[in-house]
Computed example of a mutant assay.
Amino acid sequence: MKQKIAFIGGGNMAEGIIRGMLKEASFLPEEIYVYDIISSRVEFLKQEYKIQGCVSIGEATKEADILVFAVRPQDAENVSVQVKSFLEEKSIFVSICAGVRIKSFEQWIGSDKKIIRVMPNTLTETQRGYTSLCMNGNVDREMAEPVFRMMEAIGRVMEITEDMFDNFTAYSCTGPAYLLYLMNALIDAGVRTGFSRKDARAITIENMIGTAMKVEQIKKHPFEILDTMTSPGGVGIEGIYTMNEEGIYGKIMHSVEEATRRSKELA
């Protein structure tokens, strides 16, 4: 059955979701509508993805089955008030605004509205990573099925309680940043040991992809796999010993802890 999926805000995250939806053919271009305050952005998305461009919030919102609210957090209240008068009783309001809680939207658009809060992953191009999701009491799992399907077009979906959203932002959404930092350190280490930067980069990428796939496929704890890769008096155990001596394990955990603290501050 044909649906209307309306995006209020057409930034990078909205574009990533739209791209994933169309790539997975989970929704059709004629079902997707977008409005952004910058008209040139609407025109770009319209031309790039053959979706429906709108010239006003009312045009995008009216008769929408799912309204994806993708504005800046600092603009959330003002735009919510504008959206309220156009929302249909059937509409599911889906917020991807970082740090804005469901209770705030209930105050702005009505406590009787169907509201889902989503924190999309940051790997939409690769359609990997987890998106978090929680719902208010007006939505059940069956109603939310199209929203799950929409988010599954950009990766996997994890339903969590709202009090874990700030932690999710710092741990999951920021997760690629930690891995990119480690990747760069390994690439620099490869250059230092004599490899060209091109070769060091290629080796590091293949090692990271292959290791992640191995952990996922054989379903063992990472340290169980590590045990099979460290022979007595060998090269691997020497490198692991040095990392332990430097306290790298604890420093990584502390970095995530500090990112979580900052995420809660911003919220």
Score class of each variant (00 low, 15 high):
Asn167Ile: 15
Lys251His: 12
Lys220Leu: 12
Thr169Gln: 06
Ile237Pro: 05
Gly16Asp: 01
Phe44Arg: 10
Ile240Arg: 00
Leu266Ile: 01
Glu245Leu: 07
Arg128Val: 14
Leu123His: 02
Ala177His: 01
Lys220Met: 09
Ala200His: 06
Arg197Pro: 04
Ile160Asp: 00
Ser91Asp: 01
Arg197Val: 14
Gly239Met: 07
Ala170Lys: 04
Arg128Asn: 10
Glu15Arg: 10
Ala14Lys: 08
Leu67Met: 09
Arg156Glu: 14
Ser39His: 10
Tyr171Asp: 05
Lys90Thr: 13
Val83Gly: 04
Ile102Asn: 03
Asn121Thr: 13
Leu182Pro: 02
Asp227Pro: 11
Lys114Glu: 03
Val71Arg: 05
Gly250Thr: 11
Pro222Gly: 05
Leu180Val: 12
Ile205Gly: 04
Asp163Ala: 04
Tyr49Leu: 09
Met150Asn: 12
Glu257Ile: 11
Ser91Phe: 01
Asn244Glu: 07
Leu45Met: 07
Asn207Gln: 15
Leu22Asn: 01
Ile115Phe: 04
Phe86Gly: 08
Ile96Ala: 11
Val81Tyr: 12
Gly9Val: 12
Gly155Leu: 00
Glu89Trp: 04
Ala153Thr: 10
Val83Cys: 08
Tyr241Val: 12
Asp188Gln: 10
Tyr130Val: 15
Glu106Cys: 00
Ile37Ser: 15
Leu45Val: 04
Ile17Ala: 06
Ile18Ala: 05
Gln107Met: 11
Gln127Arg: 14
Glu125Pro: 04
Pro120Ala: 03
Ile18Gln: 06
Met243Glu: 00
Gly250Phe: 07
Phe69Ala: 05
Val191Arg: 00
Met164Arg: 13
Ser39Leu: 13
Val215Arg: 14
Met21Glu: 03
Ile154His: 13
Ile109Lys: 02
Thr211Gly: 08
Thr204Asp: 06
Gly194His: 07
Met183Thr: 11
Gly233Leu: 02
Met21Thr: 06
Phe168Gln: 03
Tyr33Glu: 03
Asn167Asp: 09
Gly11Thr: 12
Thr131Met: 02
Glu30Ser: 11
Val55Glu: 15
Met208Thr: 02
Thr230Arg: 14
Lys90Phe: 01
Ile66Thr: 01
Leu87Pro: 00
Ile92Gln: 09
Ile248Asp: 00
Lys84Gln: 09
Glu89Arg: 03
Tyr130Arg: 10
Glu245Asn: 12
Val42Tyr: 13
Met151Ala: 07
Glu246Phe: 00
Ile248Gly: 05
Phe168His: 06
Cys54Gln: 10
Met21Lys: 09
Asp65Asn: 10
Val191Asn: 03
Asn121Glu: 02
Glu152Val: 06
Met213Ile: 10
Cys97Phe: 07
Val235Tyr: 02
Leu67Phe: 14
Pro232Asp: 03
Gln3Leu: 15
Tyr241Trp: 11
Phe69Ser: 08
Ile37Thr: 15
Gly137Gln: 09
Lys84Gly: 09
Pro146His: 05
Val83Lys: 01
Arg19Trp: 06
Thr161Phe: 14
Glu30Phe: 15
Ile240Gln: 05
Glu238Asn: 09
Gly233Ala: 02
Glu162Ser: 04
Glu159Asp: 00
Ile225Phe: 08
Ala64Gly: 07
Cys134His: 09
Lys23Cys: 01
Tyr130Ile: 14
Leu133Thr: 11
Met213Leu: 13
